[in-house]
């Protein structure tokens, strides 16, 4: 009895998937995404939700989003779109052109779009995601909104899949709604390892990342890990908690001799 029901559900799921011509939306059954050297170089066309607890982590959020978006930029898709509510500019800060270069994004490629209402916000995200020249849409959403429900996220994920551009929703707070996002990240900034020659100066940006939904490819860390930003992109640190004194863990990609490579790249 139970088995028949299960089989029936499976058939229905397969039919829906066939109708939509894409993988079933439930996270557990998804195959791990194909990844390259960088475990976070995810393919385009996905909807991500990135959460952090407090508004003051906004810069860490933007940095992470730019890091995810950077591998998607290319000659065919040269643009990034940043969407923000017009009233939140002072609270959250505006993306600063001169600081973008550090994340490998040229300021000319970032289109900044300020909207008045959540309706306009969703419209702008959707419209930008449909554009074939847009690699990723980064939406900075400071407050929870009723309109950002499952329907809205489903719509956005379909748009993203259709057009092949990634949509990143930056959300703040601890509340979670049902969502059709393929990935849900939870971020917080983490103390950096310090500069190689001056332990009292801040080193490379570091995040603590928890994947609440979705799965990374083989070789990537477990659901909770630490992440550094290097000149070559993201580097996942070893499982061990990095020491505060500056003995950083090894990047999981790249260098042959982890400790040495790490020190060299910091020096450079």
């Amino acid at each position: 009895m139970h088995g028949r029901k299960h089989a029936q559900i499976e058939t229905l799921r397969a039919r829906i998937a066939a109708l939509e011509e894409r993988l079933p939306a439930s996270g557990e059954e998804m195959a791990p995404l194909p990844t390259s050297q960088d475990p976070l170089a995810l393919p385009g066309g996905l909807l991500h939700e990135v959460f952090t607890d407090a508004r003051r982590n906004g810069a860490a959020m933007l940095g992470f989003a730019l890091g995810l978006a950077r591998p998607l930029l290319g000659p065919g898709r040269p643009a990034l779109v940043f969407v923000q509510m017009a009233g939140e500019a002072q609270e959250a800060g505006l993306p600063y052109g001169a600081g973008l270069a550090h994340f490998g994004v040229s300021p000319e490629s970032l289109l900044i779009c300020r909207v008045e209402s959540v309706v306009e916000l969703l419209w702008a995200i959707e419209e930008a995601a449909l554009c074939r020249a847009v690699a990723a849409v980064i939406a900075d959403i400071g407050r929870p909104h009723k309109a950002l429900d499952f329907t809205a996220s489903r719509r956005l994920s379909l748009r993203a899949a259709d057009a092949g551009s990634t949509v990143l929703l930056l959300r703040y707070g601890t509340g979670r709604e049902a969502s059709a996002a393929r990935f849900r990240w939870r971020l917080s900034p983490a103390p950096s390892a310090g500069m190689a020659f001056d332990a009292r100066a801040p080193g490379r940006p570091r995040w603590r990342v928890d994947i609440e939904k979705g799965r990374l490819g083989k070789g990537a860390g477990s659901p909770g890990f630490f992440l550094d930003w290097t000149e070559h992109g993201f580097a996942i640190l070893d499982r061990a908690e990095p020491g505060a004194a500056g003995v950083a863990g090894a990047p999981s990609s790249g260098a042959a001799s982890a400790g040495l490579g790490n020190r060299y790249s910091e020096a450079g």
Partner: peptide, 26 residues
Amino acid sequence: PDGTADLVRLKDRMASRLGPLAVSRT
């Protein structure tokens, strides 16, 4: 197949809906 023309149209659409000052670049 590049989307440069698409991008120009996107900017036009956004500027006409959100206002010309709402869509900006650095």
